[in-house]
C-alpha cells in the first residue's frame, strides 16, 4: 500500500530532488554488493586509460538512485518499470542531482508515469528515463 494515493498526485508534480552520494567510497561499496569489479567504476586513472573522463557511476546504481527518489516520495508504491537512457557518463566523485516529475496519469489502472533525470553540476543531463509506478 502506497503512502500516496493516486488521487492526491497531480500531473506535473515534482518529486523532492535528491543529491546522491556518488563518491568513490560509496560507489566501491555498491560495486562490492553488486559484484561489479571493473576498474572503470572504482579507479579514476584506469578509467581514463579506457578513454573515459574519470571513473563512472555504474548504470544500475544510477537506476537504483532514481528508484530511491520514487520510494522516498511514495513509500510502499510499486515501481513496475524503470527505463533509462544513458546520455553521458556520470562521474564518480561528482555532485549530481536526481530529479523526477509526474508526466502521465492513467485513470484506468491508477498508475502514473514519472520522468527521471540525473544532471551534473553544470545542469547537463547525464541519465534520463521514465518509470511506471502503481500507487
Amino acid at each position: 500500500m502506497s503512502a500516496r494515493s493516486y488521487e492526491s498526485v497531480e500531473f506535473g508534480e515534482d518529486l523532492p530532488e535528491v543529491e546522491p552520494d556518488v563518491g568513490m567510497e560509496n560507489v566501491k561499496r555498491f560495486c562490492r554488493s553488486a559484484m561489479m569489479y571493473g576498474p572503470r567504476f572504482t579507479d579514476h586513472e584506469k578509467a581514463k586509460k579506457e578513454g573515459l573522463p574519470s571513473a563512472i557511476v555504474p548504470g544500475i546504481m544510477s537506476q537504483g538512485l532514481l528508484g530511491a527518489i520514487i520510494h522516498n516520495w511514495a513509500p510502499g508504491c510499486t515501481i513496475k518499470s524503470i527505463d533509462t537512457v544513458f546520455r553521458a557518463p556520470l562521474s564518480v566523485d561528482s555532485k549530481p542531482t536526481c530529479r523526477a516529475v509526474v508526466t502521465d496519469k492513467d485513470d484506468d489502472t491508477h498508475s502514473i508515469e514519472i520522468d527521471l533525470t540525473i544532471v551534473n553540476e553544470a545542469g547537463e543531463t547525464r541519465v534520463l528515463g521514465t518509470a511506471k509506478v502503481e500507487l
Partner: peptide, 17 residues
C-alpha cells in the same frame, strides 16, 4: 527508438507549465 514521451503528454506539459 529512444523516445519516451507520448505526444498528448507533451501538450499537457506545455499547457500545465
Amino acid at each position: 527508438d529512444d523516445g519516451r514521451a507520448k505526444v498528448e503528454n507533451y501538450c499537457q506539459w506545455i499547457s500545465k507549465k
